[in-house]
Design a protein around this nucleic acid. Structure first.
Length: 115
DNA sequence: AAGTTGACTTTCG
DNA sequence: TCGAAAGCCAACT
């Protein structure tokens, strides 16, 4: 395969990032249907408090992961993707708490998944 | 190397 | 119950 060692410095950066991303995706992928986890919960599961970094990973690499199972601490889905997530929540039979204006939020009291 | 951004969290009013 | 501000961590420029 590769005769040379290959520098390493840049690879360590990429490896470190891939490691963080892999852990996040693994936790997200381990969330069962009908349950949700907060960004901070996922971060805590991998031993970090980087809730924002978790969101950043979802924005880039979450395209292939059940990102809709990861919600904010308030039970609101990510930004304007609520409509898109709602389709999945109804399909996964996730407990939702509906407001008077038709807006909904995930019932973390029942749907919060604890690893 | 340093600063800015970001699919966030928590606390105060 | 809702709104604004500060804090923390990781990635990008």
């Amino acid at each position: 395969m590769n005769g040379a060692v290959g520098g390493g410095g840049a690879e360590e950066d990429a490896a470190a990032a891939a490691d963080f991303v892999s852990r996040v995706l693994e936790v997200v992928d381990s969330i069962p249907a009908g349950r949700v986890m907060t960004y901070g919960g996922v971060a805590a599961a991998i031993g970090s408090r980087a809730a924002r970094a978790v969101g950043g990973v979802m924005a880039r690499y979450g395209s292939d992961s059940p990102w809709w199972r990861v919600v904010r601490a308030s039970g609101h889905p990510p930004l304007d993707h609520g409509t898109r997530a709602l389709q999945h929540y109804r399909t996964e039979d996730t407990p939702l708490r509906w407001g008077h204006d038709g807006i909904y939020r995930v019932d973390l009291t029942a749907a919060r998944h604890i690893p």
